[in-house]
Amino acid sequence: MTWTVPNILTVLRLFAAPGVAVMFLFFARPWADWFALVLFVVAAVTDWFDGYIAREFNQESRFGAMLDPIADKAMVVIALLVITGFSGMNPWILLPATVILFREVFVSGLREFLGATSSTLKVTKLAKWKTTAQMVAIAVLFSTGVFEHHFAERVHGMDAEMVGAILSGTIPDELGLGALIWGEQATFLAGTVLLWIAAALTAITGWDYFSKARPYLMDGSE
């Protein structure tokens, strides 16, 4: 392989995938949420840049074509595992995450089985939109953890009565608790909606790939 800029960015994105989970092993929240969010967003942006550079400067390669979707899937799968775990297995997160994980494993298995004919399952524009929706949803849900744990830090030592009085306006909200609660709820709602949209696109593209592969799955097919 040639170490072109697109290939280097793709390799870095691949290594960033487990880095998202590692943040929660070495840092306390909300700093772990911040670091994971920044790392994930930067890695997601490189996904656009490496493709653009490869096309614009004629640096496309077989290595990049092979590794790029692997890096994307690793990022999405690991980030979803982290988010699902820290959401307390919330069914609104768990169900779309399960659809996404199932589809990614299923399509990867199809490509492996088809071998030389796997070119039948070329990445479509809808599949690219699917990946974008997944990454945006994940980034928004990571930001939910940021708001949640900054709120927890600021109310540390307060009793429930005082927190309620601040949020109701009885006591001046000098700590910005209302804004943090609003940010947590807004990002969770937006992230969940986006994740369901991503899951729907994921299911549609998965069925599309399966339909294209069906002729090669029949007994007696070449």
Rank of each mutant, 00 (worst) to 15 (best):
I197N: 02
G169S: 05
A190L: 15
K212F: 02
W196F: 08
A199M: 03
A190D: 08
L177D: 10
Q185L: 11
E184R: 14
V193I: 15
F210Y: 15
A186R: 05
L201H: 06
G191P: 07
D173F: 03
T187G: 08
G178Q: 04
L195V: 07
G191I: 08
D208F: 08
Q185A: 11
R214M: 12
D173I: 02
G191S: 10
W182A: 14
A199Q: 03
A186Q: 10
W196Y: 07
A203K: 01
T187A: 10
E174N: 12
T202E: 06
Y209K: 00
P172L: 02
A199P: 07
T192C: 06
W207E: 11
G206S: 05
A190F: 11
I171R: 07
A186D: 07
T192P: 09
A203D: 05
W196T: 04
A213S: 09
I181P: 00
W196L: 06
W182M: 12
A198R: 00
L180A: 09
L177E: 09
G183T: 07
G183V: 06
T205E: 14
A198W: 01
T202C: 12
Y209A: 10
F188Y: 14
S211W: 08
I204N: 10
Y209D: 15
L189S: 15
L177M: 11
L189Q: 14
I181F: 08
T170H: 09
I181R: 14
G176W: 10
A190C: 11
I204F: 15
A186F: 14
R214P: 01
G206L: 05
I171T: 13
F210H: 13
T202G: 04
I197K: 01
K212Y: 01
L189D: 14
W207L: 15
A203F: 15
T202R: 04
F188W: 15
A200V: 15
A199N: 04
L194S: 07
G206V: 03
I197E: 01
V193S: 02
I204H: 12
G178A: 05
A198F: 00
G178D: 06
L189R: 14
T170Q: 13
P172A: 03
E174H: 10
A190Q: 03
W196E: 03
W182S: 13
T205Y: 00
T205I: 01
Q185I: 05
D173R: 02
G183W: 06
E184Q: 13
D208T: 09
R214W: 12
G178L: 01
L194V: 09
I204S: 09
L194K: 05
W182D: 14
T205H: 00
P172C: 02
G169Q: 04
I204Y: 14
G169V: 03
T170K: 10
A200E: 01
V193Q: 03
I181A: 12
L189V: 15
I204L: 15
